[in-house]
Design a protein around this nucleic acid. Structure first.
Length: 281
DNA sequence: CGTTCAACCTGGGCGC
DNA sequence: TGCGCCCAGGTTGAAC
């Protein structure tokens, strides 16, 4: 579920935790660890206790809390990866059953990571591990600030479909399945176009569309489709789904040219596009 | 290099 | 009403 606009909205929604000190942590039904060497819940709880949340930032589709302990003033990073159904909440969760982490601060606020499917991850790592895992070699530039030139450089020799490349977090960080379709519709590019056929000019258009769509989606606090789906930190649905031009609209008319929107499958994921006004290069 | 598949999970919706 | 099947916003690693 959560892509860049949703994670950005979550981060803004929990910004009120900055500066607060962690009093209690509970990991009921903790999610599986990203890898066997990840810290266990007990280890994390011990490190988090009486630590201060220094700041909260988004890194691609992850929320990162920088943590500092009084007695060992070295940064560590609490990283949340919501994957499909993870949510960061500061109000009561939809069910108790899927609470993966509950933090109470000394100031009596509650921060909850809730994840119905349990595919999301929580990890607490030091600076060097953080950089090894999430440095620029592992993660492309943020999708909000990608330039056409940077995109062109990254993909010009690739034979992959552009839609599949946009989902690759090494190319650019933050775009997921919903926004990839929306961006290519805005840029008027067929999702099945192979990257090496895209000119610098067309890459400029994709980068511009990327920034416009994502900024608008952030303004609307992300996309919520259905009931058990993404919510803001205070448990409200986002509103950007009202602005979707292609995602989930197969067989409906394109708003731009009235042609029927098509659904195809690429890399085992649904892609929606207008076969008339999105050009194949 | 690129593509496909399975796996990690839960639960909603659908056809029968 | 119940059962089995398919589907879902993400990521990873193995196989071809």
């Amino acid at each position: 579920m959560p892509e860049l606009p949703e994670v950005e909205t979550m981060c803004r929604g929990i910004a009120c935790f900055c500066g607060e000190i962690i009093a209690t942590t509970q990991f009921p039904r903790y999610t599986r660890r990203p890898s066997p060497i990840e810290p266990r819940p007990r280890t994390m709880a011990a490190k988090l206790h009486r630590s201060r949340i220094m700041d909260i930032t988004r890194l691609g589709k992850r929320a990162v809390l920088r943590i500092q302990h009084n007695e060992t003033p070295v940064d560590s990073f609490l990283v949340f990866e919501p994957r499909m159904t993870g949510l960061l909440l500061r109000v009561s969760p939809p069910t108790q059953q899927h609470v993966r982490l509950a933090i109470t601060t000394r100031e009596k606020q509650r921060l909850i990571f809730w994840d119905r499917r349990g595919l999301g991850t929580i990890t607490l790592i030091d600076k060097s591990t953080f950089e090894a895992r999430f440095g620029s070699h592992a993660l492309g530039p943020d999708a909000l600030t990608i330039t056409g030139a940077a995109l062109h450089t990254k993909i010009h020799s690739s034979r992959r479909h552009i839609k599949v490349a946009l989902l690759d977090q090494k190319i650019l960080a933050g775009v997921g399945n919903i926004y990839a379709s929306e961006i290519l519709h805005e840029a008027k590019v067929d999702p099945r176009t192979r990257c090496h056929r895209l000119s610098q000019n067309t890459c400029d258009r994709i980068a511009t569309a990327c920034s416009r769509i994502l900024h608008h989606a952030i303004k609307m606090e992300g996309s919520s489709i259905g009931d058990e789906t993404y919510r803001t930190a205070d448990n409200r649905p986002g509103r950007y789904q009202r602005f979707h031009k292609v995602y989930g609209r197969s067989d409906n008319k394109c708003f731009r040219c009235e042609t029927k929107i098509q659904r195809v499958v690429q890399a085992q994921r649904s892609t929606f596009f207008c076969p008339q006004c999105q050009r194949r290069y």
